Simulated assay, not measured.
Amino acid sequence: MTSPRCFSTSVPLHGGPDAAGVPVFDFSTNSNACGPCPEALHAVQAADATRYPDPAYTALREALGAFHGVAPGRIVLAASASEFIHRITALAAQQGAVQVAVPQYSYGDYAQAAQVRGLEVLRGGGAAAGLQWACEPSSPLGLEDPALGAWRPGDAAAARRVLDCAYVPLRLDPEGAWTGAPQPYLPSASWQLWTPNKALGLTGVRAAYAIAPPDGEEQALGLTALAPSWPVGAHGVALLQAWTQATVQQWLVRSLRTLGAWKARQQALCTDLGWALHAGSLANYFCAQPVSVKLQSDLAALRASGIKLRDATSFGLPGTVRLGVLAPAAQDALQAAWQALPGRTIPHRVSNGSGETS
């Protein structure tokens, strides 16, 4: 639990490019490494940037509503997921919220948005007297969020709950794998926040949308009123329109098969390096604990060689890194760079007599 008077002045930590520029091999983000989706990229490149979008986003909200099978009035456009996180937190504070519940390990913007507004942060979920967050699957571990088991339809608290669906389209497990349409297991009584740019491999295009609960159109109007004019530009509109197209969804579904094979190879490579894997990830990323007594300097050395991993300390997991799944060439570069670090040794693997090693 953090003090409601504890304000953060530091820049939130994120993966991706940094002051050193664009990494050659970037394991620090969860963007779809099979991307960019060609059709979505073409739509973004063809966007007419000489004109304002429709300020009401009429056609876009209709397309997104049809894609999800909901009324367009339940769709709220956002400049990005992070922008929506701050906006809905501001609305919750405006309506008298005093607490925000966030997962034990989670995206830092949930807590940061609460702290800068003087709200108390409850880690590990719980029935906060305000706003409740869940992420499916969770980040950084890629697990099913335990909070969802307590989110029952018809609960009076549903309007104060937000499910971050950023990684739903990137689930790789057979039971929950994305099929090209929203999954029926998602709790419809809560808010849903969607950011397709990760799934389409176009994270540089900042655009997102949220879906209000069935009885939440009035709250959707309140959130829209809090937004500046045109929160989503022409390129973001093009991305979100492309997201609803069947051919784009077919590309995404095909890419998941490739990501699944790459993930198995990357996890095996990490195991060969002697890293301890956090089990159970359902998505295109996972966490591991490298064998290192000076992890920060090792990560800095990797970054200097063009390879970036996501230090999970800010998630509450010191000594751990989160790795987005990348192609085999990037994996091999990581292996070579790690083994080239000073004092690095390769774990000795002994045959068990069956052709396998241990």
Rank of each mutant, 00 (worst) to 15 (best):
Leu252Lys: 07
Ala159Pro: 05
Thr224Lys: 11
Leu141Ile: 08
Ala59Phe: 14
Ser255Met: 04
Asp54Thr: 08
Gln249Gly: 01
Thr179His: 13
Ser314Glu: 09
Gln94Asn: 13
Asp332Tyr: 12
Ala301His: 10
His14Ala: 09
Cys287His: 00
Leu277Pro: 06
Val24Arg: 09
Gly316Arg: 01
Thr50Gln: 05
Glu175Arg: 12
Pro228Phe: 10
Arg265Ser: 05
Tyr105Gln: 11
Val22Asn: 12
Arg117His: 06
Leu91Asn: 10
Asp164Lys: 13
Gly260Ser: 08
Pro182Gly: 02
Leu309Trp: 10
Val76Lys: 09
Asn30Cys: 11
Gly204Ser: 00
Ala208Trp: 03
Ala189Glu: 09
Pro12His: 08
Asp298Phe: 09
Val205Glu: 04
Thr313Cys: 13
Tyr167Arg: 12
Leu77Met: 12
Ile75Asp: 03
Asp48Thr: 01
Ser31Glu: 09
Ser281Arg: 04
Ser281Pro: 04
Thr320Leu: 14
Ala79Ser: 04
Ser358Phe: 15
Pro153Ser: 06
Gln45Met: 13
Gly236Lys: 03
Gly15Gln: 02
Pro137Val: 01
Asp173Ser: 03
Ala19Ile: 13
Ala242Leu: 01
Asp109Ala: 15
Ala210Val: 00
Leu226Lys: 15
Gly154Val: 02
Gln339Pro: 11
Pro196His: 06
Gly236His: 04
Ala288Glu: 00
Val22Ala: 14
Leu302Trp: 04
Leu226Trp: 14
Val325Tyr: 01
Gln241Ala: 15
Leu163Val: 05
Leu223Arg: 02
Glu144Ala: 15
Gln339Val: 11
Thr58Lys: 15
Leu172Glu: 03
Gln183Gly: 11
Val22Gly: 14
Gln45Ile: 15
Pro169Arg: 04
Pro228Gln: 10
Gln296Phe: 14
Leu334Trp: 05
Pro72Phe: 10
Gly180Phe: 00
Thr2His: 07
Asp272Tyr: 00
Ala93Ile: 14
Gln245Lys: 12
Val76Ser: 10
Leu131Ala: 01
Pro4His: 01
Pro347Ala: 08
Leu131Thr: 15
Leu309Tyr: 10
Trp243Gln: 11
Ala177Tyr: 14
Val325Ile: 01
Gly180Pro: 00
Asn352Glu: 01
Ala336Asp: 11
Gly108Lys: 12
Trp243Met: 09
Gln132Lys: 14
Pro214Thr: 04
Ala157Glu: 11
Gln115Pro: 03
Ala225Gln: 02
Arg310Phe: 15
Pro328Val: 08
Leu170Glu: 00
Gly233Glu: 08
Thr320Gln: 13
Leu256Cys: 08
Cys165Glu: 03
Cys165Lys: 04
Leu64Met: 03
Ala225Val: 05
Gly73Trp: 14
Leu226Ala: 13
Glu120Tyr: 00
Gln192Gly: 06
Leu302Arg: 04
Arg152Cys: 12
Val205Tyr: 05
Ala210Thr: 00
Gln192Cys: 05
Thr320Asn: 10
Gln112Val: 08
Ala336Asn: 10
Ser3Leu: 11
Leu341Tyr: 09
Ala159Ser: 12
Val70Ser: 10
Ser3Val: 06
Arg51Leu: 12
Leu91Ala: 12
Arg161Val: 06
Val293Gly: 13
Arg206Phe: 03
Leu77Trp: 08
Cys270Asn: 02
Ser106Ala: 13
Val205Pro: 00
Leu163Arg: 00
Trp251Lys: 02
Thr320Lys: 13
